[in-house]
């Protein structure tokens, strides 16, 4: 059964007003720089053609540096596979709907190119629903939200240092292992004193 979404949103007006916006291939998401995001969102929220008054979901995505292969047609008309170096980046993804006009969905992505010191612009001045969700993104991805009024860790404890949702996160070897039958865990458990029994592995 196809899911009947609300009225789809025409992105033309916002692209007209903000020529620097890009539309992501495949997903149809708007991509913006952190510097511009507040203006864009304000436009989306207040312009009568959009009235996207409901920020549903905020999350982050972490992309490590990869090599992407893409098929391209070269000048001679042959298709060849081109390797493209994708620099590391982070995205903050926002999903907007309109409650008053029953419109949706507009996906907006803040693209952060500096993955080592990711700084994004907070939407909290415009949307209260960004408050906890951006805190969560800060907590799990380590993205610093400029303009957030209360940027603290949300789920992890204050003293925690790493950012667990990053793709290169390595879990610390500091917790108590229970001797489960799994070889991998068992091996780890053996390095911790007093544990490592159990498991019927010979």
């Amino acid at each position: 059964m196809p899911v009947s979404d609300e009225t789809p949103v025409d992105l033309a007006p916002v692209l007209e007003s903000f020529p620097s916006l890009e539309v992501e291939k495949g997903t149809g998401a708007l991509i913006t720089q952190p510097a511009l995001v507040l203006e864009v969102v304000q436009f989306l929220r207040d312009d009568p053609r959009y009235r996207l008054d409901y920020l549903s979901n905020v999350t982050g995505i972490d992309y490590l540096a990869t090599v992407r292969k893409e098929k391209r047609v070269n000048e001679e008309g042959k298709t060849e596979i081109v390797k493209i170096d994708e620099p590391p980046r982070m995205d903050v993804v926002y999903h907007f709907y309109s409650m008053s006009e029953k419109r949706g969905l507009v996906t907006l992505k803040q693209r952060i190119t500096d993955r080592d010191r990711p700084v994004a612009t907070s939407l909290m001045p415009l949307f209260r629903s960004a408050e906890f969700q951006e805190r969560e993104v800060y907590d799990l991805f380590g993205i610093d939200f400029q303009g957030h009024l209360d940027l603290r860790r949300l789920l992890m404890w204050e003293e925690f240092e790493d950012f667990p949702m990053r793709r290169d996160y390595v879990e610390p070897d500091d917790y108590e292992y229970e001797p489960t039958p799994h070889g991998e865990v068992l091996e780890k458990a053996k390095t911790h004193a007093g544990l490592g029994e159990g498991g019927s592995e010979e």
Binding site: T180, P181, H182, G183, G199, E201
Partner: peptide, 10 residues
């Protein structure tokens, strides 16, 4: 496939 990874087979 075991989600909590509780099976161990040799």
């Amino acid at each position: 496939e075991c989600p909590p990874a509780c099976i161990y087979i040799v």
